[in-house]
């Protein structure tokens, strides 16, 4: 194995050098503050995702309404995450509410249930990207990776002020290169395919529906 490594590297080093060009200037698109959310919404809607603006404090109840007619019986949420806590508190008094399931064990301990038995997953997104209509999921111990992938409905919360213009801006401003986590996923709609005659079909492997809740900052008193 190490021989292969040495031989590959030595062949590459024996090749004639080529110039290392400078990268030409390029600026990702920018949006006026007033147009940013509209772009974010329009891009998502064009990809068959729903975008709802809600007051930060009201989202659990709003979600309850949104899920009411979708036959949702079990919802997975973060264990110990702020999102999960808010959801549990708000829905506790509602006997009709879907069953809440915290992601509180390693996947191996409940794979069957998460793969087949959960209807929706609620996660927090650390930000959004207006240009492409994208959520940035940065999974954590509390909100693991599969929550946003296995259930047929994915609900993502994103704070309005964390919606940026472009991916390039996010990476640079937040210094990602110094602190990459296990996994980051950019999500720009429900799971889809066009492998059969270029006809779009949703939910081929991941969620069939994506519901984005944009949390508005409470007005300053």
């Amino acid at each position: 194995m190490s021989d292969a490594r040495a031989r590959i590297l030595s062949r590459l080093r024996a090749a004639p050098p080529s110039p290392v060009p400078d990268l030409p200037e390029w600026r990702a698109p920018r949006f006026e503050a007033s147009a940013r959310l509209e772009k974010f919404r329009a891009m998502f809607e064009s990809m068959k995702a729903e975008v709802h603006e809600v007051e930060a404090a009201d989202w659990p109840l709003r979600l309850r309404t949104l899920l009411a007619n979708r036959g949702v019986r079990a919802v997975v949420h973060g264990d110990g995450s702020a999102t999960g806590g808010q959801l549990a508190t708000a829905w506790a008094a509602d006997p009709e509410a879907p069953r809440l399931v915290p992601y509180d064990r390693a996947i191996e301990a409940w794979k069957g249930e998460l793969v087949h038995g959960i209807d929706a997953g609620v996660t927090f997104a650390i930000g959004g990207i207006a240009e492409t209509g994208t959520l940035i999921l940065w999974p954590t111990v509390e909100e693991p990776r599969l929550m946003s992938l296995l259930p047929p409905i994915h609900v993502a919360l994103v704070a309005e002020e964390t919606i940026h213009d472009s991916f390039a801006e996010v990476i640079a401003e937040q210094g990602w290169s110094k602190r990459m986590p296990t996994n980051i996923v950019l999500v720009s709609g429900p799971s889809k395919t066009a492998d059969i005659e270029q006809t779009l079909a949703f939910g081929v492997h991941g969620p069939k529906e994506l519901i984005v809740l944009v949390l508005r900052r409470a007005e300053a008193p």
Partner: peptide, 17 residues
Amino acid sequence: TYVNMITSPRRDGEKDG
């Protein structure tokens, strides 16, 4: 739809991956 950026295997305490 997805841009999946993988930097490591499951770390201690993480529940999946």
